[in-house]
């Protein structure tokens, strides 16, 4: 990481960054286009699932390439990734709760 790159390394890294930029732009444009055109055609659940997956993909490009995490040691990546499991469980538990409140407050 530290120190000085050869010209080839530098060029390939710059190219990788621009490639990620292109991907990020494409995904964003696709998301917006789908939100505008297919918003009323596709079931909301599938649409949201697509948006979530697309956002996670975008997050992957930012973290892996821009934040350079792809090139760090595996143990380091794991140490940052594993705590995110807590957030996934928190999201599940909180949303189950929110859904429960909906049914408590607005019984069908």
């Amino acid at each position: 990481m530290s120190g000085h790159l050869t010209e080839e390394q530098y060029k390939s890294q710059v190219a990788a960054v621009w490639k990620s930029t292109l991907w990020l732009s494409i995904i964003t444009v696709v998301e917006v286009v789908i939100a505008l055109t297919l918003g009323h055609l596709i079931p909301k659940f599938i649409l949201n699932l697509f948006f979530v997956l697309a956002s996670v993909l975008k997050a992957f490009f930012i973290i892996a390439e821009f934040m350079h995490l792809k090139y760090e040691k595996r143990a380091f990546i794991i140490s940052l990734g594993v705590p995110l499991i807590f957030l996934v469980w928190a999201l599940i538990a909180f949303v189950v709760e929110g859904n429960y409140w909906l049914h408590l407050n607005f019984p069908k």
Partner: peptide, 22 residues
Amino acid sequence: GFIVWAHHMFMTGMNPFLGSVF
């Protein structure tokens, strides 16, 4: 320790199913 927090809240009227998971 990070996945058990709602056991402090069994009596708040939270979702009982969630309570059993906790």
